[in-house]
Design a protein around this nucleic acid. Structure first.
Length: 276
DNA sequence: AAAGGCCACAACCGCCTCGCA
DNA sequence: TTGCGAGGCGGTTGTGGCCTT
């Protein structure tokens, strides 16, 4: 099959796989726009990248998902939604495509059927403009304690205005390294006690699901080493220390409590070892 | 045996983000 | 500041194998 631009489409042949593998082994991953010409493949850059990441990469794990993996997927999906790459990042050797396919072909049906069951029951509360939960994106890219050595002060407010959550200043000590940061978050998200402690001490009240996802994003790929201005960047806005930035973060108490309750109910022994 | 349905997996497509000039 | 290109992500579609009728 050949596309409109003369680029081959459809299933990959063994010869193409060999060419791609050799090319990546020789030049390394990245610069995918150069891969087709380097490898002598009549494929587009995206196709090459996808084939490598989802199929040819040496550490890609294939075959059935284990019970632990399934359990983790379910929990993480509840926490992160369809953030397949983030979920896959917690599953050693699994790709986002794998996880997505698995979810679409297995778990989604279960969720739908359980949703149907719930829908057959009387609704406790109708959804209105006032009570709908609306997650907001939250980037931690320039989180002060991920970057600097200093111990800044944060002015904490809320989306509901300072009337409901008076600005309070908290002192936060920067974790010593990336693993520690990640451990703290995972311990927090899987251990109800820890979470309450952390939250109370930071005047936040609760943290949104999108914030959790953003945290993962930051811990996965955005830790930076250099000293940086003291402050927090949310979206395109950089907040200097002392400014109110929390107003852009959704504080979904209901959602968070729901997750905590679910996570608290059962926690397999192998879970922590997978994630940490 | 053949047709149709279902399922799992591979692959494509469009959009978004980010870095750079 | 802006435009462009590359990388990456998530949704969707295609495909082949297996099962049922």
């Amino acid at each position: 099959m050949v596309g409109s631009l003369g680029v081959r489409k459809g299933a990959w042949t063994e010869e193409e796989d060999i060419l791609l593998r050799k090319c990546v082994e020789k030049y390394g991953e990245g610069r995918w726009h150069e891969v087709p010409s380097r490898a002598g493949l009549n494929r587009c850059r995206k196709s090459c990248r996808m084939r490598w990441l989802n199929y040819l990469k040496p550490n890609v794990k294939r075959g059935q998902f284990s019970v632990d993996e399934v359990d983790l997927i379910i929990r993480l999906h509840k926490l992160l939604g369809n953030r397949w790459s983030l979920i896959a990042g917690r599953l050693s050797g699994r790709t986002a495509n794998d996880v997505k396919n698995y979810w679409n072909s297995n778990q989604r049906k279960k969720v739908i059927s359980s949703t149907d069951e719930v829908q057959s029951k009387p609704k406790a509360k109708s959804i209105t403009r006032d009570n709908i939960i609306k997650p907001q994106p939250w980037k931690f890219r320039n989180l002060f304690w991920l970057r600097g050595k200093s111990t800044p002060l944060i002015n904490v407010g809320s989306q509901y205005g300072d009337d409901l959550c008076k600005p309070c200043y908290s002192t936060v000590s920067p974790p010593s390294d990336i693993n520690e940061v990640e451990s703290i978050w995972w311990e927090s998200s899987l251990d109800d006690k820890e979470i309450n402690q952390t939250i109370n001490s930071s005047c936040l009240g609760s943290v949104s699901v999108s914030a959790a996802a953003a945290y993962l994003e930051s811990s996965e790929s955005h830790f930076v080493k250099n000293n940086a201005p003291r402050g927090i960047k949310t979206g395109d806005v950089f907040y200097e220390q002392g400014q109110n930035c929390w107003s852009d973060i959704s504080l979904d108490a209901d959602l968070w409590n729901l997750i905590n309750t679910e996570l608290d109910q059962q926690q397999p022994e192998g879970l922590q070892s997978i994630m940490l």
